[in-house]
Simulated assay, not measured.
Amino acid sequence: MANTSADDLLRTARELFAVDGYQATSIGHIAEAAGLSKSAVLYHYASKEALLDAVLAPAEAGLAAVLHRFPQASDGNRAEFVEPFVDFLLAHRLEASIFINQGQSLHGIPVIDRANQLVQQLAHAVSSEFGSIADRVRFGVALGGAAYILAAQENWADPDDEPERDDEVRAALVDVVATLLTTTSTGIAATRGD
């Protein structure tokens, strides 16, 4: 299989896993969408799980790099953490959606378990001092919401409008994620006078 076909196969699998879901996507479905035979797919990837691993490996490495760069995101540098994280999401929007939004239902698949561990490390690095349920919910909404918005962007955009440019989407995500991650329930209570 030529490099272009391998890239096309991975791109097709990534899109189908993200849009239709890993569980609902068969090797036959991927092969058909990629214009290949099922045996051609299985020749290069012994299983659907091996194909998922190949799809997610670059995103897993990218998230590990973001975490390595910012091992502890205290209040002072949590905002600095947001931009590289949003850049990671933009570069790996479909992959992030797969392991963030489908991660719980795919527990037991090694690449998903590794990605889930990275997400847990991310949560600890960014919100180690968050003690309340509301603060943990804020983190989850920031992470899952950003991943969902990027993966489903085409679905919620007005078809008559020009597509959003990545720089505009990036600026909006940085603003919203930073706001969510730098606002704790203690800070909200103080501003409300609670």
Results as ranks from 00 to 15, higher is better:
2 A>V: 03
3 N>V: 14
4 T>V: 14
4 T>E: 15
8 D>Q: 15
9 L>T: 05
11 R>D: 07
11 R>N: 10
14 R>E: 13
15 E>H: 15
15 E>S: 13
17 F>P: 07
17 F>E: 08
21 G>S: 09
21 G>N: 09
21 G>V: 01
21 G>H: 01
24 A>T: 09
25 T>Q: 05
25 T>Y: 05
26 S>Y: 07
28 G>K: 12
28 G>N: 10
28 G>D: 12
28 G>A: 11
29 H>V: 06
29 H>N: 13
33 A>P: 01
35 G>Y: 06
37 S>C: 01
38 K>A: 07
43 Y>G: 07
44 H>D: 09
45 Y>M: 02
47 S>D: 02
50 A>D: 14
55 V>F: 07
60 E>P: 00
66 V>P: 08
67 L>V: 03
68 H>D: 15
69 R>F: 04
71 P>T: 01
71 P>S: 05
78 R>Y: 06
78 R>E: 09
81 F>Q: 06
81 F>N: 03
82 V>C: 07
83 E>K: 03
88 F>D: 09
88 F>E: 04
89 L>Q: 08
93 R>I: 00
94 L>H: 12
94 L>I: 01
95 E>Q: 13
104 Q>V: 13
105 S>R: 12
108 G>I: 10
108 G>P: 02
110 P>S: 07
110 P>R: 03
114 R>L: 04
114 R>E: 12
117 Q>Y: 00
117 Q>V: 10
119 V>P: 05
119 V>G: 07
121 Q>I: 00
122 L>P: 02
122 L>N: 02
127 S>T: 14
127 S>K: 00
134 A>T: 13
137 V>L: 11
137 V>K: 08
139 F>V: 10
145 G>W: 01
146 A>G: 10
151 A>I: 00
151 A>E: 10
151 A>C: 08
153 Q>S: 12
155 N>A: 15
157 A>E: 15
157 A>Q: 15
163 P>G: 02
164 E>T: 12
167 D>W: 10
167 D>S: 13
169 V>L: 12
171 A>F: 12
173 L>M: 10
177 V>N: 01
177 V>Q: 02
181 L>E: 07
183 T>V: 10
183 T>Q: 06
184 T>D: 07
184 T>C: 00
187 G>D: 14
188 I>R: 10
190 A>G: 02
191 T>F: 09
194 D>Q: 10
194 D>M: 08
